[in-house]
Amino acid sequence: MKGEEVERLVRALLGELSRSDVSALGRDEDLVEHLGLDSLQGLSFLAAVEKRFQVRFPDELLAALRSVGALVEGIQSARKEPVA
């Protein structure tokens, strides 16, 4: 899957989960701040991304996955690793 396609799907999932319009959200904008996510919500969102894209982010990267751009890169590099 190409970067743009991953980004489109990430945005769609984000919009669905946060029930808000995220189309205008900058690629590097901080999601936690922008959407006012609490920490468990942030993790729930990451869990949903992992499940939808069939990936597993390395635990030590979780805290850094706070923008659409970081998520897209995270998904792409996790896809290169075998799924744990």
């Binding site: 993790l43 729930s44 990451l46 869990a47 949903a48 635990d59 030590e60 979780l62």
Partner: peptide, 16 residues
């Protein structure tokens, strides 16, 4: 901290 985060995510995944 990371282990607890991961446990939570795995729980969420079971549910969704």
């Amino acid at each position: 901290f990371l282990q607890r985060k991961r446990r939570y995510m795995e729980l969420v995944k079971q549910r969704i």
